Simulated scan of single mutants.
Amino acid sequence: MDPILFSTIVMLAVVLLFLLPSAAVTVYAERRISAFIQNRHGPNRVGPFGIFQPFADVIKLFLKEDIVPSKANWFLYTLAPMIPVATALITVAVIPFGEYIFVADLNIGVLFLLAVASLAVYGVTLAGWASNSKYSLLGGLRAAAQMISYELPMGVALASVILFAGSLSIVEIVNSQEVWWNIFRNPLGFVIFTVAVFAEANRTPFDLVEAEQELVGGFHTEYSSMKFGTFFLAEYMHVVIGSMLITTFFFGGYHLPFAGLWMPEMGPVLKSVIDVHVFLLKTAFWVFVFIWVRWTIPRFKFNQLMQLGWTKMLPLAIINFVVLAIILYYLP
């Protein structure tokens, strides 16, 4: 077998074995961390320290009756929960876990990433429409408006990152941070990108897509059983993916701080082991930040959410891009 094909297959298997269980780990972590923040116990009955609670939740969802509204569009209603999960799995294909560990190094990796990420909006929008419920439809429309609004500043923030790397390849972007991480070179772009990732992942304070109090339950009001569970699997997968993207584009990816100045040469096996551990530790930190923010900051109103995206973040992202382009042109 071609060694490149073999390594790609192995990496795909690793991604599937890592990303899918990471959602269960994130659910457990959120329950424990939120309990600590609120000074309560959290899950502590199912298994030692409640570690089997996510498995109990999955079993419960499997055993629940799968109810489909009589006037729903059955095909789209069934398809909708699968779309966000599929986009999350595809996105990981272009994220490098190490210098030698990635599925694909595309020379248009950033464009591929933005294109695939934008498909996730179809899942919640189709779910809202196909359910034939006014509450679900309102949730789906909120999702479309929110995601489109925050994809624009996210894209411009990534464009400012591309200026430093001079390439659309995500591997090249990570390698350009071997000495200076982009958070130091592009702090405003980091803030804009991070806020946009929170909004794209539908996490507090931007979880207007669900907005339980206003919309009964949002786009998934009419879903039950594992279709309902699949939406939350996708949400937590997007939290992990968002943490990976922040790590990749602004926190040096798999590079240690100022690695280019002091990191000695080493073999590919040892280098890969260190790279993966560094990358996963950074990702875990940002997953913690996602959870921390959710249980600390209250939800915005919808007009505040849209105003922030269009009147604050997008102009700031454009100004940041123009200023960095001028600086790099005259001071390469």
Rank of each mutant, 00 (worst) to 15 (best):
P54F: 01
F55E: 01
I59K: 13
K60L: 10
F62D: 02
L63S: 13
L63W: 09
L63K: 15
E65P: 11
D66R: 11
I67R: 14
V68G: 04
V68K: 09
V68S: 07
P69T: 10
P69I: 08
S70G: 08
A72M: 08
W74K: 12
L76H: 09
L76I: 03
L76F: 14
T78E: 08
P84T: 05
A86F: 12
T87I: 10
A88Q: 12
T91L: 15
T91P: 07
T91R: 08
V92P: 01
V92K: 02
A93E: 05
A93K: 02
V94C: 01
I95M: 01
I95Y: 01
Y100S: 11
F102A: 13
F102H: 12
D105R: 12
N107I: 09
F112L: 08
F112R: 10
L113M: 15
L114D: 09
V116S: 03
V116W: 04
Y122A: 11
T125L: 15
T125D: 00
L126S: 01
A127M: 03
G128V: 04
G128A: 12
W129N: 09
A130W: 06
S133W: 11
K134D: 12
L137R: 11
L138M: 15
L141S: 13
R142E: 10
A143N: 10
A144F: 11
Q146T: 15
M147Y: 09
I148A: 13
E151V: 05
P153W: 00
M154C: 03
A157M: 08
S160I: 00
V161D: 00
I162H: 01
F164D: 02
A165L: 02
A165H: 00
A165K: 00
G166K: 03
G166R: 02
S167E: 02
L168C: 06
S169K: 07
V171A: 13
V171T: 14
E172F: 01
V174K: 00
V174G: 01
V174I: 05
V174P: 01
E178N: 10
V179E: 04
W181M: 06
N182A: 04
N182V: 04
N182W: 00
P187I: 04
P187E: 03
